[in-house]
Design a protein around this nucleic acid. Structure first.
Lengths: 136, 136
DNA sequence: ATAGGTGCAAAGAGTTTGCGAAATC
DNA sequence: GATTTCGCAAACTCTTTGCACCTAT
């Protein structure tokens, strides 16, 4: 059985969520830490990780494993949308108006027999800024 | 400028690639290490990582960052296809015949202006085996 | 009052890397 | 024979966790 534990709205949790929803850069945990530190100078990195885990569990934040692995990025926008990940600078950008996400999940469910919870459509490429610098 | 370095076909590299293409389980690097060890008992984990990096660079193998981040899985099948990742057991299964992948990349290119190199469509859900065990 | 949360620092997991020896082209 | 690759072990990066003190409900 799943018991919905009570989530206290602490100053730290509130600020993390606020910073994350005000930004569309999909920051990493250490990046979020330094963003939040401007408002809460004594917050620890451990607290940031703990809160991100909780917020992901609650579905208020999305965890985005990125190409290369190892590091996660976080997204305060939980509406279904696709991402493009630049191989050069690591930036992750949103793509809206792609495909019908409901239809994708429905097709996946029919083909796999899985109970589909969510999905992630990540394109990998080189962003216009980096294209100018890099010989492809 | 990108110079195509000469890749020596060492016993280690050959066996890693063979094991990876013969399997559809999307193993992690340590898992590949123990698979390969059955044939090359003295191969080190570092060598496995180095070769996986090279093979990914060459496009012979795909790196699959998985939900939760931290650990990568590897796929010897480089044809475009989607994956389903089970939240309970971590298993990653292939989905073929989903959408037109060429069309997806084309749409992404038009919307983002990126030079799209590849993409990854990952569904997250609970597999039939785990559904039997877990209360959703 | 008390379960839940925090900061700090240490530990853990996965991956990368420096080095001298070995193997491929 | 030159250069790439290997095995080993140490180092690194990101993340998690134990503990003693705090705080929202």
């Amino acid at each position: 059985m799943i018991t919905q534990r009570s989530l206290r709205m602490t100053a730290q949790r509130k600020v993390i969520l606020e910073e994350l929803t005000q930004v569309n850069t999909h920051p990493t945990a250490p990046e979020i830490h330094s963003m939040v530190r401007r408002r809460l100078p004594h917050i620890s990195l451990g607290t940031v990780y703990r809160n991100l885990d909780l917020l992901c569990e609650q579905g208020l934040v999305l965890r985005l494993p990125t190409q290369g692995g190892k590091q996660n990025r976080f997204d305060g926008d939980t509406k279904a949308h696709a991402h493009v990940h630049c191989t050069e600078c690591g930036r992750v950008v949103d793509l809206l108006g792609m495909f019908s996400h409901a239809e994708m999940e429905d097709r996946a469910r029919r083909e796999s027999g899985y109970h589909i919870v969510s999905h992630r459509l990540e394109f990998v490429g080189v962003c216009p800024l980096c294209r100018a610098k890099v010989t492809i």
